[in-house]
Simulated assay, not measured.
Amino acid sequence: MLQPTYPIKTARLILRPFTPDDLAAFHAVYTHPDVTRFLDGEPRTRTESAALLATKVQGTALTRPGQTLAIAIELVETGELIGDLTLQWVDGEAGNGEVAIALHPRHQGSGYAAEALTELMRLGFEDLGLHRMFGRCDARNVASASLMEALGLRREAHLRENERIRGEWRDELVYAILATEWRRR
């Protein structure tokens, strides 16, 4: 079980539960072309963003496998919501978790993603007791692949044309790290 004590503060970020008041900033992330080009499906309508946000508002803890922890990423300096951080508890028996992050492009390239994911992986390994954490990305998403490598995840797979999104076959990369590797870094 993982019930984080919120807010979680890092050097430059506040990681906290989502609230309904986050809709405008949340929608701005998930409709930006530089974000949506690497995601499944079409850019969300405001109504679709509101429905997704309502689900994320409920994702404040992990009590059983299959659940997803949803965390808003906010800048300490300005209080601005800049992204979405998730940890899905994939499998309780094997101790697997999947991490994902989406940042507004205006805030990419500043180290915020690494700062947020480092804290999320700490929560997964140290507080939830996961054995292995993994992340996936579109093979063309060089920034996401580089981020995972910089955090110590190794590429485990390059899945060729495994998804058809918006009429186009896409390759997917899978990166992972074990708890023992995380502790050694």
Rank of each mutant, 00 (worst) to 15 (best):
T31A: 13
L13T: 00
P33V: 04
T10A: 07
T45C: 04
P33N: 00
T60Q: 14
A25F: 06
T31I: 06
R37H: 13
L13S: 00
L23A: 04
D22G: 07
E42G: 08
A28Y: 06
D22W: 01
R46G: 00
G59Y: 04
T47H: 05
V57S: 09
L52E: 11
T47I: 11
A51T: 13
T55C: 04
L53G: 01
Q58K: 11
A24T: 12
S49F: 06
T60R: 14
D40G: 06
D40Y: 13
P20S: 13
E48R: 09
H32W: 13
L23S: 03
L15T: 10
I14Q: 13
R37L: 06
H27K: 05
K9D: 10
L53F: 07
Y30R: 15
P33F: 02
Y30M: 05
L23F: 01
L52P: 01
L13Q: 11
L52V: 03
K56S: 11
R16K: 01
A50Q: 15
V29D: 02
Y30V: 07
V29Y: 00
T19F: 05
T60V: 15
A54L: 02
P43V: 06
A51N: 02
K56M: 14
R12D: 05
L52S: 07
D40F: 08
A28H: 00
R46E: 15
D21Y: 01
H27L: 05
T19I: 01
F18D: 00
R44L: 15
T47E: 15
A24Y: 01
K9R: 15
A51H: 09
D40H: 14
P17C: 09
A11D: 14
F26W: 06
R16I: 03
R12N: 08
H27P: 01
T60F: 02
A28S: 15
K9M: 05
R16F: 03
A28V: 01
V35Q: 03
T31H: 10
